[in-house]
Simulated scan of single mutants.
Amino acid sequence: MVYKRKTEEERQKEVEVLSSILEEGVMNATMNPERFKALLEMAAIFPKYSFRNVALIHNQMPKATYVASFKKFRELGRNVIKGQKSIRILAPRIANVKNDETGEEERKIIGFLSVPVFDFSQTEGKPLPLEKYKLKLDGNSNESENIIEAVKFIAEQDECHFSMSYVPGTTCGYYSPVEHRIVVSDSLSGNHKAKTAVHELVHSKVHRKNNETKEEQESVAEGAAFIVCSYFGLDTSSYSFEYIRVWSKETESILKYCEQIHEIASTLISEFETYFEMNESLEINLAIA
């Protein structure tokens, strides 16, 4: 059966309905109590960093979540995976300095040193709280296979390399602005791979410069992924609503990004439809030949 593209009016109406479902779903989402507890435990385990170091971390690894030193991870029973590149942050250099007025020595910051740290996803070993309550989408479907193929094609048109491979830690996938490539974990279910692929595709198209806050980046990418996947028959609400709620500082935060999500989703849907139409035409021509 040849794919039939909907009219612009039909597409916009459906996207508006899905946007409303997204808004209501996120604002009414309730987090699994055990997962919420795990998030609090993770926050307590890992060190807090200054605003400057947080910026340095996310410039080097946009998907970083829980960061600590090699020594700290060893204390937690985890080892840095061989070959992982460290993230560099600044640590104060402290020395004894003589006070000119009192003549006594005082410990003062005399500069900063670049020190290596690693993200949770770069380590392996003893399970930590969040790994026990990881959000996930189960199942495989024809819809997910079609969505993944469309993402591959659209990414390639933008000269963005797409692959599925091993991704350490709890990360489902990532987009690397430096390498301009998307990687999706090959351990996920088909449905989860498709959702993650669209999520990272949004990052590749919209968040290359990383000028937005993490809340905005993640909310927009996941919101657009929900709408695109739902439009093509894959419901990701059981994952997307809670995911966005976790990243939202306030319950109504999703409302700030609605217009942006709507616009991005509409554009992507049009690109997906172009791919599906082209793919159907190619199959028909091959059959005739």
Rank of each mutant, 00 (worst) to 15 (best):
L40M: 15
V54Y: 01
K37E: 14
N53F: 00
I57E: 06
A38Q: 06
M27Q: 13
E41D: 14
F46G: 01
K48L: 11
P47D: 05
M31C: 09
K37Q: 13
N53R: 01
K48S: 14
L40P: 01
P47H: 02
P62H: 07
N53P: 01
I45F: 09
V54M: 11
M31N: 06
E41N: 12
Q60A: 10
N28P: 02
M31D: 02
L39K: 07
L56F: 02
E41Y: 05
N59S: 14
A43C: 08
E34S: 12
L40I: 12
L39F: 08
L39N: 05
I45H: 04
A29C: 08
F36Y: 14
A43E: 15
V54F: 00
P33C: 06
Q60I: 10
S50Q: 09
K37A: 11
L56W: 00
F46N: 00
Q60L: 09
A55C: 11
L39H: 07
N59W: 07
F36W: 13
N28A: 11
E34Q: 14
S50V: 05
F46P: 00
P62E: 06
N32Q: 07
N53M: 02
M27W: 00
F51I: 14
F36C: 11
R35S: 06
A38S: 13
M61F: 09
P62D: 07
N59E: 15
P62M: 04
M27V: 07
S50G: 11
N53S: 05
A44M: 13
P47Y: 00
Y49K: 05
T30G: 05
M61Q: 12
Q60C: 11
H58G: 03
P33Q: 09
R35M: 13
A29G: 05
R35Y: 06
M31R: 11
N32V: 02
I45E: 07
A29V: 05
N59D: 13
N59G: 12
M27G: 06
S50K: 08
A38C: 10
N59I: 04
N32K: 04
R35L: 13
E41P: 01
L40E: 15
K37I: 05
P62A: 07
N32L: 04
A38D: 06
A38I: 03
H58D: 04
L40C: 13
F36G: 15
L39I: 11
F36T: 11
N59L: 12
N32F: 03
L56D: 08
A55H: 14
A44E: 15
L56A: 12
A29R: 03
L39D: 03
P62F: 02
A55E: 15
N32H: 08
M27R: 12
